[in-house]
Amino acid sequence: MSTEETETLDRLRADSRSLAEQVIETFSSRGVMVATAESCTGGLIAGAITDIAGSSAVFDRGFVTYSNAAKQDMLGVRETTLSAHGAVSAQVATEMVLGARRRSRADFAVSVTGVAGPGGGSELKPVGLVWMGLSGPGDLASAVELRWNPSWSRDLIRTATVHAALEALIARLDG
């Protein structure tokens, strides 16, 4: 890992801790709960939030759904969606985030599914491609495409995704 990549990783980790503190402060002041549905990050978003004291006031639960079967069983992602679009898609990220909301007591949820590398990418879905789903009250959901540098390490791609998810939760609550 290059010095620049190490510095970026360290900065993102520090910033993510600050963002997680903001999630807890902002969500608890409004009396709302959050849930996560994670594939490529393997629970790191939930971990970032629950690393902070007071997280129980805002964090309902996290779903780590690495396999397609887990996405279907735990979140209700449809087999037809997975077959038609693949696990790394806006459609799956949307079904994941809606599943997390419907299968929890959370007011807001975030989902991520992507290719963290170093292998597993393709021309259409390269390493560094992540789809993030967001949902708030009323089952409103959106999906956002994130494209990280494919030369980044797996650790950096996953850490950047955690950072983006925490930022998105804060923006979604404020928006």
Rank of each mutant, 00 (worst) to 15 (best):
F63P: 08
A84C: 12
A93G: 08
L82V: 11
G114I: 03
G138D: 09
L75T: 01
D60E: 14
R102A: 10
A35R: 05
L98C: 11
A90Y: 05
Y66L: 09
G62C: 12
V115W: 03
G99A: 04
F108C: 03
A87N: 02
A141N: 13
A48F: 04
V112A: 14
E95D: 04
T81G: 13
L44S: 15
A90L: 05
D107H: 14
G99N: 07
L140E: 15
L140H: 14
R78K: 14
A37H: 11
A35K: 10
R147D: 00
V112P: 03
D73H: 14
R105T: 12
H85Y: 15
G128N: 00
E95M: 06
L129G: 03
M74P: 02
A48N: 07
V34H: 07
L98K: 13
E145D: 04
V130T: 07
E95K: 06
E38R: 08
M132H: 07
D73Y: 08
E95N: 12
M74L: 15
N68M: 04
W148T: 00
E123Q: 13
A106W: 07
W148L: 01
D60I: 09
P126S: 01
G54K: 12
E95F: 11
A37Y: 13
L124R: 14
G86Q: 08
S56W: 03
G114H: 02
E95I: 11
V77N: 13
S39I: 04
G133P: 08
V115I: 15
A35Y: 08
E95H: 03
R105P: 00
G128W: 00
C40G: 02
R103Q: 12
S56G: 13
D139T: 09
G121R: 04
G62H: 10
A35G: 05
T41H: 09
K125A: 02
G86W: 05
S142T: 15
S83K: 15
R105M: 14
R103V: 01
V127C: 04
S104T: 05
C40D: 02
F63L: 13
G86P: 02
A141F: 09
A106N: 03
A70V: 11
V92F: 10
V92K: 08
G120V: 10
G54T: 07
R147T: 00
P137S: 12
S55K: 09
D107C: 04
L124Y: 10
V130K: 11
S111C: 06
M96V: 04
A87F: 02
G43I: 00
S122N: 05
F108R: 01
F63T: 08
G136T: 09
N68E: 10
K125P: 01
I49R: 11
V77M: 11
S39P: 02
R103S: 13
V130F: 11
D60K: 12
S56K: 10
S135C: 15
